[in-house]
């Protein structure tokens, strides 16, 4: 069982840092061979988990959810009321989506999601997070200078647009619902989903182009 002892685990971390090889590829290889030899997991299971996250789970799921919210007023209402429940329509519930909250961009509000304390992310809906989302720079700056951060992503916000930054400090996870672009009237949900990007659902993109990226 875990010790739940802060000093003890910190000391183990220091020892590991001193004695492990510096190359992280070697460290991961050591852990993988250890757990496989112990009979805790097979290499094929590891391969299959990787395949799951490269082939099936990714931002296309979130894009489908957003496209349906744009197309179906009843689903939109349910997504805003309880997004964790609403994504179960698609079977997209999973890692970190039980307490999902959808936050909508409007002409005068822009939403931006960060996790300053770790790197919380709605994996089951957006797949693995980009490296920048997990970086110290993004975690440090998004809450203090969101407009400068957005500018680095090519988003210039007018002064009359309010930024709302959501710092994921508990088990709630946030999904930004971008504004539906003009010129997409009459599009099918599939056509709409094709223009919704991962970054628009994190909030580092604002205006979606009315044609597939």
């Amino acid at each position: 069982m875990p010790s739940f002892d802060t000093r003890k685990i910190g000391e183990i971390h220091r020892q590991l840092h001193t004695h492990l090889p510096s190359d992280p590829a070697l460290r991961v290889k050591a852990l993988e061979s250890l757990v496989v030899e112990k009979g805790l997991v097979t290499q094929e299971s590891i391969d299959n988990w990787i395949e799951l996250y490269s082939e099936r789970i990714g931002p296309k799921r979130g894009a489908e959810v957003v496209a349906r919210a744009w197309s179906d007023p009843d689903f939109h209402a349910r997504l805003i009321a309880d997004a964790g429940q609403a994504v179960k329509d698609f079977g997209y519930e999973g890692h970190a989506t039980e307490h999902l909250k959808a936050v909508e961009n409007t002409p005068d509000t822009h939403n931006l999601v960060v996790c300053t304390l770790c790197s919380c992310y709605p994996f089951s809906l957006l797949g693995m997070s980009p490296i920048w989302y997990r970086s110290s720079a993004y975690r440090a700056r998004a809450v203090k200078e969101p407009r400068k951060v957005l500018a680095e992503f090519g988003v210039t916000l007018p002064e009359d647009v309010t930024v709302r930054v959501w710092d994921s400090t508990a088990e709630l996870r946030y999904l930004v619902v971008p504004e539906r672009p003009k010129g997409t009237e009459g599009w099918s949900p599939e056509q709409l989903a094709a223009i919704v990007t991962r970054d628009s659902m994190i909030g580092t993109m604002r205006d979606l182009p009315p044609e597939p990226a």
């Binding site: 407009r147 002064e159 309010t162 709302r164 930054v165 710092d167 994921s168 508990a170």
Partner: peptide, 11 residues
Amino acid sequence: EASDDKICLDL
């Protein structure tokens, strides 16, 4: 950057 901007935390 802008006094009307908001930061929301779950506490």
